[in-house]
């Protein structure tokens, strides 16, 4: 993703759709007298994918919160103890993932990298999602000039070169930490989700039950909150699960530009961007952060999917 330099493009699409995985996804379910939440839980409980991905997401979150719990397992838990003399050395006893260019323990670094990376991923996604839901719903539901205004502003951010914007903003802030990096990524991450939100609100708005509710006198935010949002939010939620992953990678791109997180910060993005120059001679530099990153992204996507499936009334 990185080339689009932003989480957004990446997850792209606008669309009204959603992937469905899991054994129960399209199973015919007999209607029972039960709450939606209760049904959903019933479904989830029986879905192994939910348990696996949920466990992994939880693990990553614990990793991010208390890295020291894991980092010391092999006796070299401090990511900042570096011996340049062991630069790029392969895995050995006590250093299961080997050493990086600076001679630091890769295992300790990968473990400690989870915090920055997951924080950036989650922060960016939450921020973008908030903006997207509000603006997308407003544009889709109100239409007219509100739609035109929001859509054009979206276009501007969409079309504005991410690199340029990120460079300027981060440079002028001159502080590069998780918060500023996340803010910048979110600033360029909301437009895609907003478009998706808008188009799905547009199509939900035309649904018979909404038209009917309107006919019965329902209007305004109540209608949006009660009927439109719950039915229109699924696509954007799915995108959000992917956005977490893409934001993690996008952070690496900012690092490339010299405006991302900086050492002594530790993140998977930094590790990956450092690894690229040496991966031909020291592939372990690329492999381990990639695995952690991929597994994290994968877990978020799958977890998001199964939860959405469980809660989607249309799939029951």
């Amino acid at each position: 993703m990185t080339e689009r330099f932003g989480p957004e493009p990446t997850d792209g699409g606008a669309g009204v759709t959603v992937a469905v995985y899991g054994p129960n996804a399209d199973q015919e379910v007999t209607v029972r007298a039960a709450t939606l939440r209760g049904d959903a839980w019933q479904d989830l409980r029986r879905n192994p994918l939910f348990w696996i991905s949920g466990f992994l997401v939880l693990l990553m979150i614990v990793l991010a919160a208390i890295p020291d719990l894991f980092a010391g397992w092999f006796g070299n838990g401090d990511p900042r103890v570096c011996d340049l003399g062991r630069s790029n050395e392969s895995p050995t006893a006590g250093h299961p993932f080997g050493f990086d260019k600076q001679g630091c323990d890769v295992y300790a670094n990968v473990i400690h990298g989870a915090r920055a990376s997951i924080s950036v991923g989650v922060l960016v996604t939450v921020l973008s999602l908030l903006i997207a839901v509000v603006l997308g719903a407003a544009a889709g539901y109100r239409g007219k000039w509100v739609d035109a205004l929001i859509s054009r502003v979206t276009d501007i951010f969409f079309g504005f070169p991410f690199i340029l914007g990120a460079l300027v903003i981060l440079v002028s802030m001159n502080v590069r930490n998780i918060w500023t990096v996340s803010l910048v990524l979110a600033l360029f991450g909301w437009p895609t989700m907003t478009r998706v939100m808008r188009s799905s609100v547009l199509s939900v708005k035309q649904m018979d039950y909404v038209v009917a509710a309107r006919g019965l006198g329902a209007d305004g935010w109540w209608l949006v909150r009660k009927h439109i949002l719950p039915n229109a939010i699924a696509p954007v939620m799915v995108m959000a699960t992917i956005a977490i992953g893409t934001a993690i990678v996008a952070e690496a791109v900012l690092t490339f530009l010299g405006v991302g997180l900086q050492a002594p910060a530790i993140s998977w993005g930094l590790q990956l961007s450092n690894a690229q120059n040496d991966f031909q001679i020291a592939s372990h530099l690329l492999i381990y952060p990639s695995i952690f990153l991929s597994v994290t992204v994968l877990s978020f996507i799958v977890l998001g999917d199964v939860i959405r499936d469980a809660f989607d009334p249309r799939l029951r």
Binding site: V171, Q262, N274
Partner: peptide, 27 residues
């Protein structure tokens, strides 16, 4: 980047009174 990260690491690790060498990467 790699050169100056290495210098920062060495200065930090070899000078006891220095706890941190902050890299100020300019764009």
């Amino acid at each position: 980047d790699q050169t100056f990260e290495a210098i920062a690491n060495q200065v930090r690790q070899n000078l006891d009174a220095i706890d941190e060498v902050q890299l100020q990467t300019q764009p």
